[in-house]
Design a protein around this nucleic acid. Sequence first.
DNA 1: TCAATCCAATTTATCTGATAAATCGGATTA
DNA 2: TAATCCGATTTATCAGATAAATTGGATTGA
Lengths: 238, 238
Amino acid sequence: MAGDQTSSVTDEITNILGREILGGLFPPGATLLGEEEICARFDASRSAAREAVKILSAKGLLLTRPRRGSRIRPLKDWNFLDPSVLGWLRASATPRHFITELLEVRLAFECEAAALAASRNNADEIAAIREAFEAMRAASSGQGDPVSSDAAFHEAVLAATGNRFFLPLSALIHTALQYSVPTTNALFGHPVGDLDAHGKVLRAIEAGDAARARKAMHDMLSEVLARVRTAVELTGAS
Amino acid sequence: MAGDQTSSVTDEITNILGREILGGLFPPGATLLGEEEICARFDASRSAAREAVKILSAKGLLLTRPRRGSRIRPLKDWNFLDPSVLGWLRASATPRHFITELLEVRLAFECEAAALAASRNNADEIAAIREAFEAMRAASSGQGDPVSSDAAFHEAVLAATGNRFFLPLSALIHTALQYSVPTTNALFGHPVGDLDAHGKVLRAIEAGDAARARKAMHDMLSEVLARVRTAVELTGAS
DNA sequence: TCAATCCAATTTATCTGATAAATCGGATTA
DNA sequence: TAATCCGATTTATCAGATAAATTGGATTGA
């Protein structure tokens, strides 16, 4: 009963089908779902079934055509960065591969995001990064949630780039942290080293030093990647 | 009448409202849209209006609550990497700022994508990159569309990373190319230099040299950025 | 026999209308 | 004055009917 939230019928159908699709229950090639089928399965009206299908289509998972039903689109069209899609994927992903993929992407764009944040040098947005950093420090001594303050730090960096196209990546960061922080903390205790690493990123950005910010972010994420790999090995997860 | 395609009523409503939202017609803060309002405006049924709203909500633009109507969500929740959202944004973006933002993001992740493609070294997926390269060469001598072959090259690189989270970025690349290739070609003629630059990326990936692939991609995109900036200056676009 | 065309059944798209559930704002009351 | 209650409005869901589009087989002609 964790977080059931009595969601709407449409959301219920959307979430269940989304998890099943991301879990690979339907062959991505050409399988099809019919309206009638969905209504019967969930004992719902056609309105609810159709709205759920529209949502899944909007996220790139389905393509609906009159008479043909809803076919699963090729993987390359799936909106893997969408928050819901990430959630559905998380439910069925193999931990090791999943976290590695997420960190590869974070390494690709967060380093440049830090560099951009440093060179833009927007006072307000950089202040938000520092604020998140202070929240992380508080969390490291037991005052607050370590995952959300960590996420807030990285989201603040994305916002400080002044580039809208970095914003949607915060969902990926959040997913990665939800996955890795509990795992690594359980093995290594509170991530003290992490706090120092975040501090280096913050100071480089505050100094307006793009190159140093890029390197500091790179060092930090490489460290996380190494730590997660160790953790996954130790716990024997696949 | 270019590309009208007689789309469905739902899609029509979705596209018009999407363009208006991305164009900033509705204050992102707290404005609201009512079902009744939408039905009346488009002379459509509530089903069509509701399905359009669900699609826009799925892309992070709206949040609908009983009695409250559909409110515009804060910008940070918008799915700017979604193909439709990118299209709506393109319709109202100021050319100079838009293309700069897109290229900043491309510089952030395409360099790492090239590096990953090189180190994974998957024969089939690298063959696809070469195939796209040959299509680009043909296009440079008038045989085929220069935009789509260029896009295919970069999408093939993303696919060759073996990382699903790079795939959704192909929409951004496609948008960037649709924007920049015609502009620069009109001023500089066929992009011969571009072909050489793509060749360098391809050879580095085929050689499995991650560092060289990363640098080749970086050089190429920096060059494009410089060229687009010049073009925008010359044409006097804002 | 084969190919092209046509037709009918099925499925999605859209509309209409009705009921349930949730929320906001004002009225009521202590 | 503040907390609570209640009614009106709006979204959520359901039900049923018609329109439009597509598939697959039947028909027709060479």
